[in-house]
Simulated assay, not measured.
Amino acid sequence: MKPVYLIPVLLVALGALQGCATHESQQHLQYASTALQSVSEEPQILQDAPKDVERASESLERAKRFADFWGNAQDVSHYAYLSKRYSEIARQHSEQLQNQRRATQLSMEHERLRQAVQEARMLDLQHQGRWLEDQMVSLAAAETDRGLVMTLGDVLFRAASAELGSSANRTLLKVVHFLQLNPKPRVRVEGYTDNRGDAAENLALSKARAQAVGDFMQSLGIDAGRIEVVGYGEQYRVAENASARGRAQNRRVEILFSDEQGRLSSPR
């Protein structure tokens, strides 16, 4: 039999442990509530993963009910954790569905572009010479000391990303048409950035954007041997980086065309 004087000490110790457990379970409740609120405020997630959001809500309500009873801190934490995980799963499911929709849309767009290229190949040979001349004009390329250069602006890419936006398709299709019907010229795709951020990251982004353009042309049938890709990062600016307009001009991809024999000027 334990001495009577130990009972108050044990009660104090148990109270302290209960207090710690209650504080921890309340934290878990807060995390779960924040996660649920976050996904509940995004209509796309509610549309894509309604069952996961519902499970998150039900688990959170159960955790709150357990919180009203003394001695159930472990149950509170358990259901709060389940709620938080269901919220995370809802977001993941929504992102997966959005990626699938985006991939389907891109696939359909590529198929449409491939069909357009095939139609271009079937043009009457008697009119092909004139068509090529018109295409060179439509490329909006400028003659420079390095050769014919076409500039693609930053707006063709998603912000701070090397992913091409849908607006790039029509512009690049003109280049693909020209190269398909005029098989000798080659191109060098050059990427550039402004001077904001880390120089090494800018260099990598410029190379990735140039590569994205090259990959796009290859996906529509242009042989890889006709395409060079290089990134210059912050180098060779065409405007001052002091203004937003100037930085936008520096964030660009340039397509340099070779001569009729396929000779490109030397890299910078």
Rank of each mutant, 00 (worst) to 15 (best):
Q126F: 12
S38W: 08
Q44G: 07
S94Y: 03
L82G: 00
G19S: 15
T193R: 10
L139D: 00
G19D: 13
G191A: 07
Y192R: 10
S266P: 12
L152R: 01
A21H: 06
Y192G: 04
Q128S: 10
H93A: 09
P185Q: 05
Q235F: 01
G19A: 15
Q261A: 15
L181I: 01
I222L: 07
V253D: 06
R62C: 04
R237Q: 14
E240I: 09
R188A: 10
A142E: 15
G71C: 07
L125Y: 11
V149K: 00
E24D: 10
F178Q: 02
T22N: 12
G225M: 03
A32L: 04
H177L: 08
H93Q: 14
D124I: 01
R247D: 12
S258P: 08
A248G: 04
L6D: 13
G191R: 05
V189E: 02
R247I: 05
R170S: 15
E24L: 14
E254H: 00
E201Y: 06
K64D: 02
S59H: 12
L152V: 07
L113V: 13
V229G: 01
Y192H: 14
V137R: 10
R226I: 05
D124Y: 02
L29A: 08
Y81K: 12
P3W: 08
G197V: 09
A140W: 02
C20E: 13
H177T: 10
N99M: 14
A200H: 09
T144F: 02
N250D: 10
G225N: 09
H28W: 06
R226E: 02
G262W: 04
N169L: 01
Q126E: 09
L152G: 03
K174E: 02
G19T: 15
A168E: 06
R186G: 05
R114G: 04
G15T: 13
S87F: 03
N250T: 07
L156I: 10
Q37K: 12
F69M: 11
N250F: 02
L113R: 10
S57F: 02
E88A: 12
